Amino acid sequence: MILLISDLHLQEERPDITRAFLDLLEGRARQAQALYILGDFFEAWIGDDAMTPYQASICQALRALSDSGTQIFLMHGNRDFLIGQAFCEAAGCTLLSDPCVVEMGGEPVLLMHGDSLCTRDLAYMKLRRYLRNPLSLWILRHLPLSTRQKLARKLRSESRTQTRMKANDIVDVTPEEVPRVMQQHGVRTLVHGHTHRPAIHKLALSNTPARRIVLGDWDRQGWALQVDEQGFQLAPFDFH
Rank of each mutant, 00 (worst) to 15 (best):
G231H: 07
L8D: 06
I2L: 11
T161G: 09
P134H: 11
L38Q: 06
H196E: 05
L131F: 14
D49P: 05
E176W: 04
I213M: 09
R148Y: 02
L38C: 10
R148P: 00
L74K: 08
L111C: 03
Q226M: 04
I139W: 07
E103W: 10
A32C: 08
Q233G: 09
V173K: 12
R180T: 15
P134T: 10
Q221K: 12
E176F: 05
G77W: 05
R156Y: 02
L95A: 08
I5P: 00
L215K: 01
F232P: 00
P99E: 01
L4N: 09
D172V: 08
L225C: 01
I200F: 06
L8R: 04
D228W: 04
S68F: 13
S146C: 10
D228S: 02
R212M: 10
T52A: 06
L8F: 10
G186S: 03
A44K: 14
Y54S: 02
Q149R: 14
A204C: 11
R79C: 04
S116L: 12
A91F: 13
D48M: 00
P99I: 00
H185I: 08
R120S: 14
L10E: 07
E43S: 12
H185M: 07
V227H: 02
L62D: 01
A210D: 05
E107C: 00
V227G: 00
C100A: 15
L110E: 00
Q71N: 14
A86T: 15
V214L: 04
L234Q: 04
I17M: 03
T70V: 03
I72Q: 05
W223P: 09
E107S: 08
L62V: 08
K166I: 05
W218R: 00
G84M: 09
Y54D: 01
N78V: 07
P53K: 02
T189Q: 01
K202L: 13
T163D: 11
F73Q: 02
S116A: 13
G106V: 11
E26Q: 15
T174G: 09
L145M: 09
M165T: 12
P198L: 00
G69F: 06
K150G: 08
Q233Y: 05
T70L: 08
G69H: 11
T52Y: 05
S136H: 12
V102W: 07
D172N: 14
G84R: 05
R164V: 09
I200G: 06
T161C: 11
R63P: 01
